[in-house]
Every structure is written in structure tokens, then in C-alpha cells.
Design a protein around this nucleic acid. Sequence first.
RNA 1: GGAGGGCUCGCAUAGCGGCCGAGUGCACCGGUCUUGAAAACCGGCAGACGAAAGUCUCGUGGGUUCAAAUCCCACGCCCUCCGCCA
Length: 420
Amino acid sequence: MIDLKVLRDNPDVVRNSQKLRGEDVAVVDQLIAADAAARTALTEFETLRAEQNLLSKSVGAAKGDEKNAILEKAKELAGKVKSADSKRAELEDKAKALALQISNLIDLEAPVGGEADFKVIEEIGTPRDFKKEGFEPKDHVEIGKILKAIDTERGAKVSGARSYYLTGYGALLEFALVQYAISQATKAGFIPVIPPVIVKPPAMEGTGFLGQAAENVYHLAADEMYLVGTSEVPLAAYHMDEILDNLPIRYAGYSSCFRREAGSYGKDTRGIIRVHQFDKVEMFSYVKPEDAKAEHLKLLEWEKDFLKAMEIPFRVIDVASGDLGSSAIRKFDCEAWIPTQNAFREVTSTSNCTEFQSRRLNIRFRDENGTKPVATLNGTLVAVPRMIVAILENHQNADGSVNVPKALQPFLGVDKLVSK
RNA sequence: GGAGGGCUCGCAUAGCGGCCGAGUGCACCGGUCUUGAAAACCGGCAGACGAAAGUCUCGUGGGUUCAAAUCCCACGCCCUCCGCCA
């Protein structure tokens, strides 16, 4: 949720943000009107209630006719209070519903435009020249078959499209990646966490996933629960309704992630780039609002460290305004080079959500002037399947074997994956 | 799934329908004392909205009442016991 004070004092900031995102602008003025109406109703209710409280107190002291007169008056007032209260509640609900529709106020430094209008910040590493090396690179599906590491056919048989089994080296690669990620994160001061992946509605709503992203969320209707698409959700909701001391707090959550991938029919249908279920290590930070920007850059550095350790060529992009999630004011993606696609593909992503989520989840910190919402940020350390794709494709040899990045060797026990 | 018990300010507890937004202890913060600390003593100590007055919050929602932490109803959560199962 946005800060309503900004809305009242600088509505143009909000209008502009919605416009840059390509989202509804009219809702801003609807909210301004609804907010004003709700506040008026609140004042009316409070005035009546104050009167009633005063009168009620005098009942005890009064006697006889005087008492009866007061009681009569109080009875009448009680009715007024009740209707004022229900009017207040109704208008507040209306205003809140509108407020929840407005996305976080965009960082004006983010590039303007749609999905294609990202800005490349830097490129790290150099893609291999397979032509020069004298062989045509195989894609991860082929290599996965040769190494018996990925089985998408049986995945489809058992669980349908966008499902897969990681077997042998595939499974071992996941364990190695996760162990390396957790050890990197732990060294950097993150607390490792294995969170629940089934959450209640407030957690989902609070993190902003039931808005524009709702169609991609698995809903367990029989129990009114949701499967999370990222551990960002349980990590953010972890401190719901709490006042935090000792910021910053950093968690590295390892969990399965579930995505319906509605609306992506026909996109990345081959292989394990876009799947319904995968495991991921996610960094999540709670910081003071003034530290959010610096934290965002730190998260990006940790993501870069990981990719460098995987020896994968990649680039960092500054995601454009129209392509941001509703909670994020700015987002950096790391995109790994995928040889067989001759393209960079997103493997990690970090978002600065400022106080948007914490306002909904009621997570605050204390300073001299009382309590304030904290800022929350998230960043992927490793999303396993996509990282496996990047490793298999970038480190392949002509014979179908794959070199293991040095960083993973201690966890995998070998320096080369060879078909057995 | 069946049967009971409970949900009050970080924790533990008190609380007759009005004098309770709420007492006490512990913890915590500030001060006095001390070479320093402990102890002792003094003071502070829930949050939201609001410029303030004031209003709201005793699991949540509803009801009774002039007035609800306190009475009634529903729901949620937690605990114990039984059954089933990893």
C-alpha cells in the first residue's frame, strides 16, 4: 500500500507513477475522493461517540427523574452513533479497497517504457565462441538427456506440461547449487530459513501477489490457502504485525516455488526455463527506509557474486517502469547468456519494495518519533532450474560432458559431468 | 475426525457491566548511588488516527445495553486427551 499522506499532499506523484507503469490513473482520483469521505465520516463518528461517552458517564451519578431524562437522551444518541459508525466502516472499506489497487510509487530513475525498454547496466564475462571451438552447442534438454540429469518426458507424463524430474547429476547439481548459495549467504550475514510454502490470504495479499499477479498463484480453494511463487511471501509475512529492533535483518529462504504460468502459453515450452515448480534460494532484507537504495545495490552485488562464481557470462538490466511488479519501485535483473538461444535470459532479479509491503503487513521499526513502516527488499540468489540451464549450456564440451564451475566442485565432488 | 481447556499491553498474571486502556511481577530504557557493576531507590515503558480535543484497539466478527475486557452468539487460533497417519 502506498503512503496516503503522499496521496493527499502530492497526488501528482501518484498519478505520474501509475502513468509510467501503464496502470489506471483514474483510480487515484477515486481514492482521493473516497479517502476524504472516509475521513469526514470518521470525524462525525468520533464527535458523536465523545458525546455519548460523556453522557454515559453521567448516568451512574444521576438519580430519579434526572436519570430517566439522561437515559432517554442517551438511547437516542446510541442510535446515531451506531449509524455513524457503520457509515464510517463502509466508507473506510471502500477507500481501502481503492488504495490496495494502486502500485508502489515508482523510482523516477527507472527507465521509462514497457518490457523492451530496459536499460543494460553492465555485461560481465564473455560468451564462448562455439564456432571457433568447432562444434554446435547443444541445448540443456539434449545435454540433460545425455547426462540423464533432466527428464521432461516423464515429468509431463506424471504432472503435465512444464514439469520435470531432476535425476542423478541434475539432482546433485541442485544440492550443490543450494549448498553453495546458502554458504555464500551465511557468510554475508543472512540467516538461512526454510519457510512454509502454503500460506494464508493475508500473507499473499500483504506481499502484493493477489493483484496483477493473481492469475499465476495456485489457490487451494478447499482450504482457502495459497502456494507461494517465491519464499519472498513467507519471509515478508514472517514479521507481520511486529515492531522490529536491530535492523537490518537479512534472511536467505530456501523453498519450492509454484507458478501457474497462466498467460504464458507457448512461451519457453521446451526444457526447464519456465516451469510450474522449482526450488530457489531467495534473499530478503528488512531495512530502514533511508537504507533501502543502498541495500538494493548490495543485493545486486550478491547476485553478481553468485553468477561470477558459476563462471557464467551475464548482463545486468534496469527493468523499465511498465514491467515492474506492483510492489517494486525499481528492479534489476541478471540475465545469463544462453548459447543455444543466442540471448540473455533472466536468472535472478532484485526488487526494492520500500514500505509498500510492510504497510500492508504492518511491520514497523522504532525511532525517536515513534514507529514507522520498514522497507523490504528481495533478490534471487539462485533459481535452480534456470541456473542448471545456464551451467549445462555454457560449460558444455563437444562430447556432451559438462565442466563444473570451481565453486561447485567441493559440493559436487567432481570437476566434470560425464555421461555414464 | 471425537472430547475438554484457554486466548488481556515483550513474558507471566489480576480484573465486580460504569471509578479499566486496564493493576501487579519480570524484562527493558533513563536517572540517583558506586572506582565499575550488582543491589536499592526514583522515573518511564502498547499501539493506530489526529495540530489538538478526542476517538479506536483486552483473538476476530456480530449481538444485548445509555454503557462490554467483563453478558450472549458465531468463527479463528493455541493447548491437553483419544483415534488415524507420516
